[in-house]
Design a protein around this nucleic acid. Structure first.
Lengths: 159, 159
DNA sequence: GATGAAACATCAAGATC
DNA sequence: GATCTTGATGTTTCATC
């Protein structure tokens, strides 16, 4: 096994862990036809490498009354390094922003924003435009229903 | 503590777990000024309630060469229950689709798609339009950079 | 909320291919 | 020479009290 490569057993382990990280090592080992030690060493190695970033609990948004998901698209005329760094800091600090992408195409940035309701969204919107200067356009689209949400990366290319 | 309600200690536990689910119960208990037993009972209860949905490992896309994120917006003239059910099944089956929303506004659906490169995206695109009939418009925007990605829901409203 | 038994992860030493 | 097995040790979970 080369320095930074993943073999099929590694990918199988990743696939199991990104589906359910609460299963016991014993069972993962069993599923990949290994005993616990080598399986544990592989997981450890992949954590060191950074392939496995972290282990988290996924919560249910509805139970927490976080019922509104918005996609916010931004345009700006500011493209300096300074502006970008400030923007990045603000975005990271705004906990309502769960995802943010710099886009190719018409809009410069796209944000996925999660809040309780329209009232909270309005508060978020005001906070955003007051903290981030130089925005020339802010367009929000609202999700009526979440049809799919997964944190599992597509790994079938590796199997 | 009411039947389905969460107190501040519960929210604190949730906040810790959605940040890092690998920490020992002992430490979580310590952080919320509880001993292990009551803390464990709270976590257990929140799992039963469904507030805690699951525990997963988050993988690093770059290590797996999944370097292309696309936002795909769809329009359709099909709005029957039958069509929607078929659409939903296809979307759930397409592992490249990590998120999917039914939207208010100009486009009917928005998909977040993760693939290795433009070549794989093209393969995905062909698969999508061949499997899902009745699409009148398919517009893809590509992310040049992921500035933020978190699975942590915003809980500050509760603290 | 304390206790302790059972389950589990971790690690060392050595076997196997 | 990397990858595995066994078994011993320390840690964590979780049911009973």
């Amino acid at each position: 096994m080369g320095a930074n490569l993943l073999d099929k057993t590694d990918v199988k382990i990743l696939s199991l862990l990104q589906r359910d990280a609460s299963v016991a090592l014993t069972e993962i080992a069993e599923q990949v036809n290994l005993t616990t030690t080598p399986c544990w060493k592989r997981i450890n190695r992949m954590q060191q490498m950074g392939v496995i970033r972290r282990q988290v609990a996924l919560l249910d948004a509805a139970h927490l009354k976080l019922d509104l998901i918005a996609m916010v698209q931004l345009k700006t005329q500011q493209h300096s390094r300074q502006w970008f760094n400030d923007f990045l800091l603000q975005i990271k600090d705004l906990e309502e922003v769960m995802e943010c992408y710099r886009m190719a195409g018409e809009y410069d940035y796209m944000l996925k924003v999660v809040v309780q309701d329209m009232r909270s969204f309005d508060a978020f919107y005001k906070k955003l435009v007051s903290r981030v200067t130089g925005l020339t356009e802010v367009t929000s689209s609202f999700a009526m229903e979440q049809l799919k949400y997964t944190t599992e990366l597509p790994l079938s290319a590796y199997s």
